[in-house]
Design a protein around this nucleic acid. Structure first.
Lengths: 337, 337
DNA sequence: CTGAAAGCGCTTACAG
DNA sequence: CTGAAAGCGCTTACAG
């Protein structure tokens, strides 16, 4: 279906209607350069009368700016993304930038082409492991604005990143389980190795154990994959071996949900027979039976800040290289409180 | 921060490197027109060697296509959006289209400019009430590809739409409450008037009552606003007047959650003192206490189909004018079963 | 099958 | 404060 060409209004028509040059129209639209009030008034009137809308592609080509930022994620596969996408969309729009969203989930992430980059955006928010390190470095080297979300910069490259206090949150949670609840056999349902949130949370778990002189036991580490289904399967199999953990620390709430389902199916009572805690505090966490003790992560806020930083980088302003947002323990009944 | 200009590879460099014209390079990239295998091989080699990426703005300007589709929503404010955004992103990428997402939530929706339209996309998915009817009609009149999601076409304009069987789902739910559960005083916690899902669901409610000769009682209609907080407030106030409804039909699961909270706070047992049901079957519904009886809506599937249709419209293919996806009763304990 | 050239609709030095 | 003109990096008739 072709657009009705007769209705295509360009800057030329506006200029003619207003009796000025296209350069002046451009200056008025972009509020760039000096324009007399008189000329500006005529231009605004013309724009209104003709219902003119600048062509984004032409602007982009001429100015070498797209006025768009991109968000790259792996896959929109959990509740986690609702607050994140909301924060990004709201802030992008408030900054006057268009927002392009794409995922690299289906493709071979190791090699190009990637859907978003220097040819179609002014800058990119890269979530977690949605892009390989080499591509990050390539983009950064050509001076392309980049902000990492829930991931830190490759060493020596200083790409700004925004994330939450994963290690500290996990450390505090495990510390709480040991000190306040008296648990010593704490299983970890860990996230994917490729996901930095998972790595930091595991580290926090290990540090807390060490601080209490509890030896790290590899037999208490299991794959939850930040994924309900995988956690369910893992925990179901695990239970067949009569494990003697007192509590499961699920590295995110999604895997906690899967684990809880497996525990219940095995006839175990939570938290009497085995306790469980999660991480993130997604909306569902408070509604589980029993309600899930977890670590609250400010997901929407991190997303907002990432966009604000990206806009600054695009404008060549300086930004924090590392933004670490505090997390907070949320004690509910699943840990035996 | 300026991109390193020396690294800017254009189609001209590729053509020189390959020893062909830019027209040939363009034909290879776009697989348009005839190109000898020999020439194509050289071009591919050049693209690889130079790490060339076509400039999206230039392509858009020259071809008058942006290769992008837009999604317009009101506000990304509930879990509902996770499956919807996922469905749209996945299908857009599978179709080789970029995806622009924006919301009209903060702005005065009645008047332009709108963030997405004919100047920056090849077509638009318009969700619910994110755009006023006049803008829809304006876009459609200039031949701009449009698909409506969870909303039907303005009369006489035949804009393709994709939605779920709201009326039928609501009708079946209320019918079930009357016939199987014996309820007769059924309160409706309705959604926003501006949201078509809300209108159809109310209609289904009314039809089911009529079919059983139960008079429609305006005193049993309350505003839930498709919103947990609003539903909570509404139901809390309502309870102060000692209402005698036997069951609440919340027009979506979010408002059902708010209502349940208000009921519990008032010391009412669900479903013994008052039953409740919802609509949508968001993930949380199954985890509520008691688990929520609701109507399952295929949200992700509707989103996928909408994008597929939009791509067809962009390619001037014919599509269904109305796609109505079936909904399904999901019986859980909140209705007294 | 291929290339020269016009043109897409803007922005931006440059000159005045 | 204003305009003429070049140019952004592609695509696409057109001619061969």
């Amino acid at each position: 279906m072709q657009l009705d060409d007769s209705s295509r209004i360009t800057i030329v028509e506006v200029a003619e209607y207003a009796g000025v040059s296209t350069a002046t129209v451009s200056r008025v639209i972009n509020k760039s350069g000096q324009v007399s009030t008189e000329a500006a008034t005529k231009v605004y009137a013309a724009i209104d009368a003709l219902n003119y809308k600048p062509n984004a592609a032409a602007r982009g080509l001429a100015s070498r700016r797209t006025n768009a930022i991109g968000l790259l994620v792996d896959e929109i596969n959990s509740e986690f993304f609702q607050p994140m996408l909301r924060g990004i969309e709201v802030t992008a729009r408030a900054s006057g930038m268009s927002l392009l969203i794409s995922s690299t989930g289906g493709m071979n992430k190791a090699s190009p082409p990637y859907p978003l980059g220097e040819n179609n955006t002014d800058g990119l928010i890269v979530f977690a492991d949605s892009l390989p390190q080499e591509e990050l470095i390539r983009l950064h080297k050509i001076g392309f604005p980049l902000v990492l979300l829930h991931r830190s910069s490759p060493p020596n490259f200083n790409i700004p990143c925004v994330t939450v206090e994963n290690k500290e949150g996990a450390r505090r949670m495990v510390n709480y389980l040991i000190k306040e609840r008296g648990y010593r056999r704490i299983a970890l349902l860990e996230g994917p190795d490729s996901h930095e949130d998972a790595q930091w949370r595991k580290l926090g778990y290990q540090e807390a154990l060490a601080a209490h002189a509890i030896p790290f036991d590899p037999n208490l580490i299991f794959r939850g994959g930040f994924n309900e289904r995988q956690a369910y399967t893992t925990v179901s199999h695990w239970l067949e071996q009569k494990p003697n953990a007192e509590v499961i620390f699920a590295a995110d709430d999604d895997s906690a949900i899967g684990a809880m389902m497996a525990l219940k199916e095995a006839g175990l009572r939570i938290p009497e027979d085995i306790a469980i805690v999660g991480f993130d505090d997604i909306r569902l966490a408070a509604y589980l039976d029993p309600p899930l003790t977890t670590v609250r992560a400010p997901i929407e806020q991190a997303a907002r800040i990432a966009v604000e930083q990206l806009v600054k980088v695009i404008h060549s302003e300086t930004v924090e290289l590392i933004t670490l947002l505090p997390t907070e323990l949320v004690i509910r009944r699943s840990c035996g409180c």
